[in-house]
Write a protein that binds this DNA or RNA. Structure first.
Lengths: 114, 114
DNA sequence: GCCAATATGTTGGTCCCCTATGCATACACT
DNA sequence: AGTGTATGCATAGGGGACCAACATATTGGC
């Protein structure tokens, strides 16, 4: 998987892994990597600005968790985030359908048993 | 479909529509639009530089078609292009599998009958 | 004391596509 | 003859998004 692959789909990934409960940045990286079968390895320089942006947009809310442990900024999905996630899923299926139908057309090239 | 959607997948689209025969730039735009069900509308400022780049890479070869008509630069897949196209298709399926498994995990969220 | 793992963040750079623009030819309509 | 529309190729400039690299701090093992 080329390094740049998630371009344009990062927001959906972040929202999706937070659907099942709040996580902090480092754990989000691990969650995405795990759920993608080890394929997607996000960088800190990628997700921290993205998380801040999503919080600015009101799709996430954050809080510091410091009790007994190392300080962690935990992000949780807001209602708006849940709604946006649903939209991202729809957009994803439309996107894959569009690209897929060009890349692998259902109309086969001529020449196989007419 | 957001304007920027094809980012990172343009090469595959161009190679794919040229698989069934040579086309010129304007026809490539029409072919992509048609095969995507009208969803993907590439711009000339997008594809002409891309076609030149793919030719530089040896994946396409071009020739001017001027006989009796308006001048057209027709692009055709080379053997290397055909090979790259196969790779793009593999990469595409890996890509969709990776993003899809994060966006729509097969492991459902806990709380539905065990 | 040192190093690895955990954890959050910023900075600079690059790539890639889009918007906007320009130019040229063919054809229909008036 | 002039105008408008469709066809056709091409470049310039801009911006967004992600990455690589770096900076900092704590925890725990050796």
């Amino acid at each position: 998987m080329k390094a740049d692959a998630v371009r344009g789909h990062l927001d959906g990934l972040l929202l999706a892994v937070l659907e099942q409960g709040p996580l902090h940045g480092y754990a989000i990286i691990a969650a995405v990597q795990h759920r993608s079968g080890g394929v997607l390895e996000l960088r800190t320089g990628t997700i921290y600005p993205a998380l801040q942006r999503l919080e600015r947009l009101g799709l996430l809310s954050s809080s510091w968790e410091s009790s007994g442990e190392r300080r962690r900024r935990c992000y949780a999905l807001t209602e708006a985030g849940r709604h946006t996630l649903a939209g991202e899923r729809t957009a994803w299926s439309e996107f894959t359908a569009a690209i897929g139908s060009v890349l692998n057309p259902t109309t086969p090239p001529p020449g196989l048993a007419t």
